[in-house]
Design a protein around this nucleic acid. Structure first.
Lengths: 212, 212
DNA sequence: CGTGTTCCTGACCATTTGGTCAAACATTCA
DNA sequence: TGAATGTTTGACCAAATGGTCAGGAACACG
C-alpha cells in the first residue's frame, strides 16, 4: 500500500547529482555493449559492470533492458538526422550536398557505436523503433528529396533520383563505421585511418555524379 | 565403450537420402532464422521447427548451433565473392565494372538473407569468421584492386582509389538488402520494388565516376 | 541528532536455452 | 526375417539471464 520507493524510472531530467551521473553512465555503457553485441547479445549484467554498477542497481534506474535500448535509440535518431535537417534549400546545391556527405562521414568516424546500434536495429527489421521510421524519418527525407528534385529540375545539378541519392550517401558514409572490421582488414593494418582517403573518394564521387 | 551411434556430424557429402534432405533443410532454415534474428537472437529450437525437426534431431545432424552458423558463413563467402572473382582484367574496364555492380545488386535482391547474415557478422566484429577475412577476402581484393589500378594508370578509367571503389560498390549494393526496411519505409509502401530504380541509379553513378 | 528520502546490494526466482542421453522407431540389406 | 545401421524423440540438465524484493547504507535536511 505504501507509495514509497518510487524508482526514478526515466525521469527525463534527473533530479539529483547521483541520478544524473549514473543515468548517463548507464546510457554510455549501454551504447558500448549494445553496439558491440547487439540487443540480444548484450546482457544487463555486462552493461551494469561497464557502468560501474550492480545489476539490481542498474534496474533501479531503468525498468528493463529494453527501456535502456529504447531511450538510446530515440535519443539517437535526432542526432543522426541533424545533418540532413541542415541541408539548406537556399544554399548552393553541390557544396550543400558535399557538406552533407562530409558531415555524415564525420559522424561515422566520431560516433561509430551509434551507427552500429542503428544498423543493427534496421537489420533486425526495426522492430524496436515502432513507427518512428514513418513518423520521423520519412517526412524529413520526403522534404529533402523534394529539395533535391527542385535542384535537378532547374538544372543546378545533374539528373539524379533524389531518394537513391540520399540512400547512397547513407550507405557510403555509414559503411566505414558499420563494416569497420572489413575495411581495416582489406586495407591492411598498416593503413591506420581510412577516413581521409574515404573523404577524398566520396567528394570526387559526388562531384562527378552531380555536376550538370 | 561401444563405438556405436557415431552421429553424422558434418559429413560434408551426406550419405543417405534422409541425411541430404535434413542437412539442407537445416541450413536453409538456419539461413532464415539467423538472418532475421542474428546469431544470438536465433534459437536452436526455432531453427529446428523451421526445418520441420525436433531440437534433439537437429543436434543429431549438427554438433552445435555455432557449427551451423559456421558452415553457413563459410559456404557463403565463396558465393558472395564470385562476382568479384569474375572481374576480367582483359575485359573492357567500364562495362566490366558495371557488370560487377549489376551482379552484386542482383545478389542483393535474390539473396537478401545471405547479405544480412554477413552484415550481421561483420557488424559484430567478425569473430565467427576467424581469419577468413585475411586469408580469403583480402588476397582477392588486393588482386582486383591492382587490376583497377592498372586501368586507372593507363587512362582507361578516371582517377579513382581502387579499394574505396570496391568498398563503395559493396556498400551501395548491399544497402538495399541490409537496410531493406528503411528503404521501403522511406519510399513508401506503394513503390514496391526499389531495385529497378536502384540499378539505373548505380549505373549512372559509376558511369559518371569512371568515365575518363 | 533524527527522520524521511534516495541509493545500493545479496539473495532469490522463473524462464529460456544450448545441449545430452537412453531408448524407441525406421530403414536397409544380407 | 532379422540383425545392423541409421533416425527420432521425450525427458532431463546445467548455465545464463532478465527481473524482483526486503532490507541495509548513505545522504539530505529540519
Amino acid at each position: 500500500m505504501n507509495q514509497s520507493k518510487t524508482p526514478p524510472h526515466i525521469p527525463t531530467q534527473a533530479r539529483t547529482r547521483i541520478q544524473r551521473r549514473n543515468h548517463s553512465a548507464i546510457l554510455n555503457a549501454a551504447l558500448d555493449v549494445f553496439s558491440a553485441k547487439g540487443f540480444r547479445g548484450a546482457t544487463v549484467d555486462e552493461i551494469a559492470q561497464a557502468a560501474g554498477l550492480s545489476k539490481p542497481n542498474l534496474l533501479y534506474y531503468f525498468p528493463s533492458k529494453e527501456a535502456i535500448h529504447l531511450q538510446l535509440l530515440s535519443g539517437l535518431l535526432d542526432v543522426w538526422l541533424a545533418p540532413l535537417r541542415d541541408l539548406d534549400p537556399e544554399g548552393d546545391p553541390i557544396p550543400e550536398i558535399l557538406t552533407y556527405v562530409r558531415r555524415k562521414l564525420q559522424m561515422s568516424r566520431e560516433m561509430p557505436r551509434e551507427s552500429r546500434i542503428f544498423a543493427n536495429e534496421i537489420l533486425q527489421g526495426g522492430t524496436h523503433l515502432g513507427d518512428t521510421l514513418t513518423t520521423a524519418l520519412k517526412p524529413l527525407v520526403d522534404e529533402k528529396a523534394a529539395v533535391v528534385a527542385r535542384w535537378r529540375d532547374t538544372g543546378r545539378i545533374a539528373d539524379v533520383h533524389p531518394y537513391h541519392l540520399i540512400f547512397s550517401i547513407w550507405s557510403l558514409t555509414q559503411h566505414y563505421a558499420d563494416f569497420d572490421v572489413q575495411v581495416r582488414t582489406v586495407l591492411g593494418d598498416e593503413g591506420a585511418d581510412p577516413y581521409p582517403e574515404a573523404e577524398r573518394y566520396l567528394e570526387t564521387l559526388f562531384t562527378r555524379m552531380l555536376t550538370p
